[in-house]
Simulated scan of single mutants.
Amino acid sequence: LTDYKVRVLDGKSATAASVRVLIESTDGTDSWTTIGVSCDVIEASWLALVDSFEYKLIKDIEKKYHKFI
């Protein structure tokens, strides 16, 4: 995790406003950004974090698979 940003998408909705969380991640070689959106900042953060881990795992599997082709 290299950066974490939270943005309120609709400030007029007060406590019912949706938030967008952007997480920037790196493995030391590659970098990627994932996004989570929810009315709950913790849920939006969790969604972005899970997507970040899934993205990294999928990319690692693809790299490993392409070595055999």
Rank of each mutant, 00 (worst) to 15 (best):
S31T: 13
Y4G: 05
R20C: 08
F53L: 10
D40I: 00
I58F: 04
Y55T: 05
I23S: 08
K64P: 00
A48N: 07
E54L: 14
Y65S: 10
A48G: 11
I42C: 06
I42M: 05
S13Y: 01
K5C: 03
S52Y: 01
L47S: 04
C39M: 07
D60R: 13
I35H: 02
S13W: 02
D60A: 11
A17F: 02
K67Y: 11
R7Q: 09
I69N: 07
S13V: 01
L1H: 13
G11Y: 12
R20I: 03
I42S: 08
F68Q: 11
V41M: 14
E54C: 06
G36F: 12
E43Y: 09
H66R: 14
A17H: 15
L57F: 07
R20D: 05
K59Q: 15
L1S: 13
K12M: 09
G11F: 04
A44I: 09
S25N: 08
D51N: 12
S13M: 09
F53G: 09
S45L: 05
R7F: 14
Y4I: 07
H66A: 08
V6D: 09
V50F: 09
A14V: 07
V41W: 02
E24L: 06
L9H: 00
S25T: 15
S52F: 15
Y65G: 05
V19Q: 10
Y4H: 06
K63P: 00
K12V: 15
G28A: 02
R20M: 11
I58C: 12
D60F: 04
T33W: 03
A48D: 07
G11E: 11
E62W: 00
D3Y: 10
W32K: 00
K64T: 04
V50A: 12
D3V: 00
F68P: 00
L49F: 15
I35E: 11
A16M: 03
V37E: 12
D30V: 03
K5P: 10
I58T: 14
I58W: 13
I58D: 11
I35K: 09
D40V: 10
D27L: 01
C39A: 11
S45A: 15
T33E: 06
T2W: 01
T34Q: 15
F53H: 08
D51R: 13
Y4A: 04
I58V: 13
H66E: 10
S45W: 12
S52P: 14
W32A: 00
Y65Q: 07
S38A: 12
Y4D: 00
S31E: 14
D30C: 07
T34A: 02
S18P: 04
G36Q: 07
